[in-house]
Design a protein around this nucleic acid. Structure first.
Lengths: 223, 223
DNA sequence: CGGGTACTTGACAATGGTCAAGTGTGGTGG
DNA sequence: CCACCACACTTGACCATTGTCAAGTACCCG
């Protein structure tokens, strides 16, 4: 199971053995907190099954999702290498199984095995790239553009299919796009009434891919 | 000179020698492009002296600064470990000297020297933490809050001094805060007229630190 | 001294957030 | 099996924040 985790690809069997002895196996119900911003980190996590959201909270309770963790991905590694405390919160949005790896044993291992270090560098780099895109969207695009980009992303992830399924609630999608459910609802409504998409529950059908691409590229959205 | 770069701290002399033979030394005037988004990366950079901005551009030319690189810092490492192309642009904002390290030689070295890998992991982690904060500010704070946070950051960086010096133009500060010069100018004006700060050119005097902290924490800004 | 850039200020428009009041809808317990 | 409750979502009216456009001022550098 551990050897199937992408982060540990290429490791020797004996080192997998070693890592297994130190780790902990945890179960979470939906909506439970895995880690909180500011906490001192004693290790990092790998999501085995389920779904976890990484997010920031404003003082008055607004939430910005930074990342949705999928099975096989790690999270909470940043304080292992810098700072010591978690920069954001993590909470399950489904019943989830999580492996916890204590800091010391892992740091020990990473210094011995270059492939583990390279895997971790690749993972952090992907994360940087993705956060860079999030900043770009928040700062340089309006909500319709962000939504269009997300729809295209889901479509591409599904092999370019014209019908996609939002895998989260619309409230969470709003939080991921840096807006609120009301605004998202309105924009989905407008896009529907213009014949760009058709929405039914969590299913979205792409009716005019060109128009969606234009929106994603910053084209103005006229009512 | 190379051994003074934080990223290379802890390396053996012979490995420093090795790295020096492969690197290139480049000079840039103010306002020159060091790398462009989407370009295929053949290596990464370390800023020796001067100043570099890392930024994203919207299709219609609006700019969002992601990071201001200081002397000694590296940039452009992400595609070394994931993706292959640069996720953003880099341009000098002062006359600058830059060392370029080709990909192959560096990857070779990093796999042999755990301390180099750890330094790089620490650097990427710091970057992630900082980008996370940028997302938080863009999404969860209004412009006065972001400005207040930046002023406090500069003050803390200067040992808690009550008089700080903006080390960039106000136009660039606007781009760093995810807004435009007009808006920044107005907000600086309001904060001045309320006696929270005093602005003179690039000098800002903190007159009411408590009020600035409140703003930074999300307190509403009443005119 | 001149020219370009940085910055400021004003009037205006629009994006998107707030508040409030619905309308489903799925799951649980009676 | 149905009723009800909680929660997700939608819709409307309103308004705050901030961006746009335009014009004018200050300032630095040659």
């Amino acid at each position: 199971m551990v050897s199937g985790i992408p982060l540990f690809r290429g490791l020797q069997h004996e080192q997998i053995e070693l890592i297994v002895t130190s780790m902990a196996d945890q179960m979470f119900d939906r909506g439970q907190t895995v880690l909180s911003e500011g906490e001192t980190a004693t290790g990092f996590f790998v999501l085995v099954s389920g779904r976890v959201k990484i997010f920031k909270l404003s003082p008055d309770g607004k939430e910005q999702i930074l990342h949705l963790v999928c099975a096989g991905e790690s999270f909470g590694e940043v304080p292992m290498f810098a700072g010591g405390h978690f920069p954001a919160n993590a909470e399950t949005i489904e019943k989830s199984r999580v492996f916890f790896f204590p800091r010391a044993a892992f740091l020990d291992l990473i210094q011995k095995d270059p492939s583990l270090a390279m895997n971790m560098l690749a993972e952090l780099s992907r994360r940087l790239r993705q956060l860079t895109r999030l900043v770009e969207e928040l700062s340089l695009k309006e909500v319709p553009g962000r939504l269009a980009a997300h729809i295209l992303y889901l479509s591409n992830a599904g092999g370019g299919a014209d019908e996609i399924e939002l895998d989260i609630t619309k409230g969470q999608l709003a939080s991921l796009l840096g807006t609120i459910p009301e605004t998202l609802s309105r924009i989905l409504g407008k896009m529907s009434s213009q014949g760009i998409i058709a929405v039914q529950g969590r299913k979205v059908r792409l009716l005019d891919r060109k128009a969606i691409e234009d929106l994603s590229a910053g084209e103005k959205f006229v009512i």
